[in-house]
């Protein structure tokens, strides 16, 4: 730290970032589908080799993909269509488990919780990450360089350990909250209570992820061609205008990426509430989030069919939410 070298990302500038300076490779890539295809037809036999080599490179991953993703998904779908009863054995119920799930108050309240949680946690995380990234990008000092690393630190911490750490801080017996609020003569808030657990969890998640999102946004900001700022300054734009009108629009793809990933992650919320459950006895029920409910059904009650149906229904909800989100932002093309 402190060396000027470390301040810059160690990679060559990526061709696709800057539309005003297209490099040779980019030009070739863009017209690849037409010209390369023709060139290949002319070469004849070479094409067969290309098919073969392509599959040789992609094949090993393809096998893992089939075995660890497609097969479990298919199996989950299959399992979710059956029901095991104490009397009468296993019977085919088609969508029966899904009808049960979507009328099950525990599942529905879990879904409602993660949706509400996403609506608060994601904008909060991204706002903090964006503010930090803009500051670290605009102000170059030893302190901002230090902050960049420190803020990122929680990402290196397993979410479980993060939850354990915050569990200590919230704790009445050895957390600092009693002392701190005691200074002002106020009672310490109990983040394990029914009213505050929502905010307690929001805080853990924000602490865990904001730094990671900040690094992604910061990397995107560093990719912007600084001559754009120069041009804007000549036109009389101030610092705030440059940030709002140039920087934020140009990193929109990165913002969208982290929005999508945080949405996928938050809807599957499991680790933090599962860990804090031990400390917040009674506040966090086993069916607190859909994933916890699926876990309880499968491993607590050995009800694998219903557990699979819940997992699958949750996967479906995530899929629909993400697609709806991408549809409304109309950025599908630029993301993929």
């Amino acid at each position: 730290m402190g060396h000027a070298v470390l301040d810059r990302p160690a990679h060559p500038p990526l061709p696709s970032i800057d539309p005003s300076e297209p490099t040779m490779t980019l030009l070739i890539e863009e017209s690849a589908s037409s010209t390369q295809e023709k060139a290949h037809k002319a070469r004849g036999k070479v094409r067969l080799r290309e098919h073969l080599m392509g599959w040789l490179f992609v094949g090993p991953f393809g096998i893992v993909f089939l075995a660890m993703l497609i097969a479990p998904l298919g199996y989950a779908l299959y399992l979710s269509l059956w029901q095991k009863k104490l009397i009468g054995g296993t019977s085919f119920v088609f969508l029966g488990n899904y009808v049960k799930a979507f009328t099950d108050p525990t599942f529905l309240s879990g879904v409602w919780f993660v949706v509400r949680f996403s609506l608060v946690a994601i904008p909060l995380q991204i706002l903090i990450a964006l503010a930090m990234a803009l500051i670290v990008d605009a102000v170059t000092s030893l302190f901002t360089r230090f902050s960049r690393l420190m803020v990122f630190l929680p990402y290196a911490i397993p979410t479980v350990i993060g939850a354990v750490m915050w569990g200590f801080l919230y704790s009445k017996s050895f957390g600092p909250l009693t002392d701190i609020f005691g200074l002002f003569g106020a009672p310490a808030p109990d983040f394990f209570s029914k009213n505050l657990i929502f905010y307690g969890l929001i805080n853990v998640v924000t602490w865990q992820w904001a730094g990671y999102y900040m690094i992604i946004l910061y990397a995107a900001l560093q990719g912007i061609d600084p001559s754009l700022y120069e041009a804007a300054r000549m036109d009389g734009a101030g610092k705030w205008q440059i940030a709002l009108r140039i920087k934020i629009p140009l990193i929109a793809p990165a913002l969208l990426l982290i929005l999508v990933f945080s949405l996928i992650g938050t809807l599957q919320f499991f680790n933090e509430p599962q860990i804090l459950r031990y400390l917040a006895a009674g506040t966090i029920a086993p069916g607190f989030t859909p994933n916890m409910y699926a876990y309880q059904q499968a491993f607590g009650l050995a009800n694998f069919n219903y557990g699979s149906a819940i997992s699958f229904a949750l996967g479906g909800i995530v899929f629909v939410c993400v697609y709806a989100f991408l549809f409304f932002t109309r950025k599908r093309r630029s993301f993929f």
Binding site: F57, F65, A76, V318
Partner: peptide
């Protein structure tokens, strides 16, 4: 490499980015 089935398998891969990892735990 522009191999046969490349476009199709790549779009499956992109779809898989949205499959929640935890949904796979119980069936796996």
């Amino acid at each position: 490499y522009r191999f046969a089935g490349r476009r199709f398998s790549f779009s499956i891969l992109l779809g898989a980015l949205m499959v929640p990892a935890t949904a796979l735990v119980i069936p796996t």
